[in-house]
């Protein structure tokens, strides 16, 4: 078995330590720091990218919140305008109604007044005409002349009975 040939041990050991130390120096001085550097750079890049993404997300959320708030404000103010409009219209209608009623009342009163006036005047005229007619009729029919004043009293008595 060549592995047990003691004569080959020393050269193998010498070259093993030589090559192993060289490999160790190459790895620890040159290659490993470089790989570590690249990995760290990538880690940093990923971390910063994630941070950026987080920031953008927060910003987007803020914008969304502002948007929602503004929408709500617009809703509230539009409701207010509608409410105000309704209130104004109903108050307008009310005042117009009131005006109309007042005018109606006034016109009714005026009409009633003029009707009363005409009625009074007519009554007076009817009394006078009746008095004259009664005086003339009595004179013609029973040839007796009554005093105008008496006749008036009698007629008023009769009218009063009718009215009552």
């Amino acid at each position: 078995m060549p592995q047990l040939d003691i004569g080959t041990f020393i050269p193998q050991l010498v070259w093993l330590f030589l090559t192993f130390i060289v490999l160790y120096l190459i790895m620890s001085r040159a290659i490993l720091p470089k790989i570590a550097d690249v990995l760290e750079q990538r880690q940093d890049r990923i971390a910063s990218d994630l941070e950026e993404a987080e920031k953008l997300k927060n910003e987007a959320q803020k914008v969304l919140k502002t948007y929602e708030r503004e929408i709500e404000e617009a809703h509230i103010s539009s409701n207010k305008i509608v409410e105000e409009g309704k209130l104004k219209i109903s108050s307008d209608i009310n005042s117009l109604n009131n005006e109309f009623e007042l005018m109606l009342e006034k016109l009714t009163k005026e009409a009633e007044y003029s009707v009363q006036e005409i009625k009074d005047k007519t009554n007076l005229e009817i009394k006078e005409i009746t008095t004259e007619l009664v005086q003339k009729l009595t004179k013609v029919i029973i040839n007796k002349s009554f005093d105008q004043k008496n006749i008036k009293i009698k007629i008023e008595e009769q009218l009063g009975k009718q009215v009552n």
Partner: peptide, 29 residues
């Protein structure tokens, strides 16, 4: 006796090949 043997040759090759494989990877990282 520090003779350069076939074993030494392959040890050197191990150093060379592993260095090459690992350093080519990070040459233009």
């Amino acid at each position: 006796n520090v003779s350069f043997t076939n074993s030494s040759f392959w040890m050197l090759l191990v150093v060379l090949v592993s260095t090459l494989v690992l350093s080519l990877g990070v040459r233009r990282s």
